[in-house]
Design a protein around this nucleic acid. Structure first.
Length: 595
RNA sequence: GGGGGUGUAGCUCAGUUGGUUAGAGCGAUCGCCUGUCACGCGAUAGGUCGCGGGUUCGAGUCCCGUCACUCCCGCCA
């Protein structure tokens, strides 16, 4: 017989009746009837009920074993009476009649119960993560993550990709997120940086003649956390391909994501062929470049309505004449909604820091169209008709208006789409709605300086004929730059890269970098592209967010084994921590105390 | 860096208008109980009400400050 177990806690059933077995695991739960004791033994695989009564001399000892003690039970598999079968358990038709036991690992009093559906504070969960991870739901999530990653590896290999590793200690990059720095002992005063992504390396891999690269790549960015964004590190499915255009990459990723989401979730995929939405359209229709397409609400621009003589809403008219825009969300058949529905939304908008959302509902009486609601009276029948024409609104629909600067209106209405859809309960929770956001602008204007800057990755290839590219209107240049969005969550962004050094110098010049500055900052990259670089491009879907969607979790810590908290601390391992003076000395580092 | 929420027993929470000795469930300890699977019943222990200051005859409750956790904004090419 094996030393610790002959079976796991999930595999015994009626076929094993009368077998003598050894099981090892944790005491999940005890039900002590005084002279009869049930113990649920748990391991990674499941639960098996073990039983002992007071005729056995071990009874008094086993009765006293605390929950979460690691024990080994020897016993006989016994068929349960029909009325005592537990259909919740795979092993529910049998139980183990204990004949012997051994304690393999004792426990102190638990700081949090393992067997419970209660929620616990993050602090206690992260401090005792090893206990938290024993709990059923998160244990399952972590195993799901493992299976997803393993499946992705196989799929990528089937699609002809090979996994290549890239350095963890690399150089600090001037653009992008804050770097994590690592001091160099052998090069005093100099620092490595942890990679924000293997961006340059994967391009170098293409230049090196490897054709299809992928990696489950750790990425490190020293930025503040969000619910869907771990501080410190996260993982990307990093992909790069040579001799491809945008559609070649879309094809690979659509195939992969369809397979992954079909295999690991029962939810439906809205469109197997992901719709392509231009950045411009997305900002107009959804107010964001990560729209939740499960939400049927759309935004339309009604600015020109407020230039009409027969619209008397002077507040908006004045703002429009001063350069503001007006956009609106139409809600279908909301004429029956109570006043409180509208007021709640207006109040919500004010809480968001805006001046609120004006609204009215379209009505028809005696063949005359009118607006009902606080600002309805300001619109003539003809103006209402014009609004209906532009927005596809119908009688019975309501219109929520926002007026202001473009950026503010987009932001407010983007949030309002979510808020209103939630209130109306019109989001299909049983759906994955993927889309591509394409045609990102190459440049944008810096809000603070007013200067032209790269809006995304400076290494992206501009669209159009590169020989006749009009560089005089940089804000009009679009890039082969794209994002994947699913249910309003940005899953990844990618691009066809610019592999032509001359073009790159020109593009950098528009953003204010002269040739020397580019060579200084990106010497490795530019140098490599100067020796025969293939056209190439790629993408990098976020693994953590994919698993979040599959596990139906809203917080990334629910799918991360050992996450940092919001202040980027590991409460279990006590990281980050102070180090010995000797260590600092060796690294030529002085700490200046923060005041 | 800014805004919101939370902080009361080991854990999850309740605590009225400021008023006597701060409660419940789970867990722990002890006792009873032979078919439970959230077993049941009884008892006991367990509290710097995050911390500091203030107002008050009196503060878990009101005010100010501070810390921790969390959500959001900024940030994340």
């Amino acid at each position: 017989m094996k030393k610790y177990r002959t079976h796991t806690c999930n595999e015994l059933n009626i076929k094993n009746n009368n077998e003598v077995v050894l099981l090892s695991g944790w005491i999940n739960k005890k039900r002590d009837h005084g002279n009869l004791l049930f113990l649920d033994l748990r391991d990674n695989y499941g639960i098996t009920q073990c039983v002992i009564d007071n005729k056995n001399q071990l009874f008094n000892k086993i009765e006293k074993i605390p929950l979460e003690t690691v024990v080994q039970f020897e016993g006989k598999v016994v068929k349960r009476e029909k009325e005592t079968i537990n259909k919740e358990l795979n092993s529910g038709e049998i139980e183990i009649k204990i004949t012997d036991f051994k304690i393999l690992g004792t426990t102190k009093e638990l700081p949090l119960p393992v067997f419970s559906d209660q929620e616990y504070s993050e602090e206690i969960r992260l401090k005792y993560r090893f206990l938290d991870l024993r709990r059923a739901k998160i244990h399952k999530n972590i195993n799901l993550r493992s299976k997803v990653i393993s499946y992705i590896r196989k799929e990528m290999e089937n699609l002809g990709f090979l996994e290549y590793q890239t350095p963890i200690l690399t150089s600090s990059s001037p653009e992008g997120a804050r770097d994590f720095l690592v001091p160099s002992r052998l090069n005093p005063g100099k620092f490595y940086a942890l990679p924000q992504a293997p961006q340059q390396f994967k391009q170098l891999i293409m230049v090196s003649g490897f054709d299809k690269y992928f990696q489950i790549a750790p990425c490190f960015r020293d930025e503040d956390a969000r619910a869907d964004r771990s501080p410190g590190e996260f993982y990307q499915l990093d992909i790069e391909m040579s001799f491809v255009n945008q559609n070649d990459i879309f094809e690979v990723v659509e195939k992969l994501l369809n397979n992954v989401f079909e295999k690991f979730s029962n939810k439906k995929i809205q469109n197997q062929k992901f719709p392509k939405i231009t950045y411009f359209d997305s900002m107009l229709k959804y107010g964001t470049d990560k729209p939740d397409l499960r939400n049927p609400l759309e935004i339309c621009d009604l600015t020109k309505i407020f230039n009409r003589e027969d619209v008397k809403f002077e507040l908006f008219k004045k703002l429009v004449s001063e350069g503001s825009i007006v956009r609106a969300i139409i809600t279908k058949d909301t004429n029956t909604k109570p006043r409180s529905f509208f007021d709640n939304i207006d109040k919500w908008a004010k809480d968001e820091g805006s001046s609120g959302l004006a609204y009215f509902t379209l009505e028809k009486e005696d063949n005359k169209i009118s607006g009902k609601g606080p600002i309805g009276k300001f619109f003539s029948p003809e103006a209402c008709q014009e609004i209906m024409k532009i927005s596809n609104a119908e009688i019975g629909d309501s219109i929520f208006f926002a007026c202001g600067q473009k950026k503010d209106v987009e932001k407010l209405l983007s949030l309002a789409r979510d808020k209103i859809a939630k209130d109306l309960n019109i989001i299909d929770q049983n759906l994955f709605a993927f889309c591509w956001i394409v045609d990102y602008p190459m440049y944008e204007t810096d809000d603070k300086t007013g200067k032209i800057k790269f809006s995304h990755n400076p290494f992206s290839m501009p669209q159009g004929d590169i020989n006749t590219l009009n560089l005089n209107n940089p804000l009009d240049i679009k890039a082969y730059q794209y994002d994947i969005v699913c249910n309003g969550i940005e899953l990844s962004s990618g691009a066809i890269r610019n592999h032509i050094p001359d073009l790159m110098y020109k593009l950098f010049a528009l953003a204010g970098y002269n040739k020397k500055a580019v060579e200084n900052k990106f010497s490795g990259m530019i140098n490599a592209l100067s020796y025969g670089a293939p056209p190439h491009g790629g993408i990098a879907p976020g693994i953590d967010r994919i698993v979040m969607l599959l596990a139906n979790e809203k917080n990334i810590r629910e799918v991360t084994m050992f996450p940092l908290n919001q202040n980027a601390q590991d409460l279990m391992m006590n990281a980050p921590s102070s180090v010995e003076d000797d260590q600092l000395k060796e690294l030529n580092i002085n700490i200046t105390k923060k005041e």
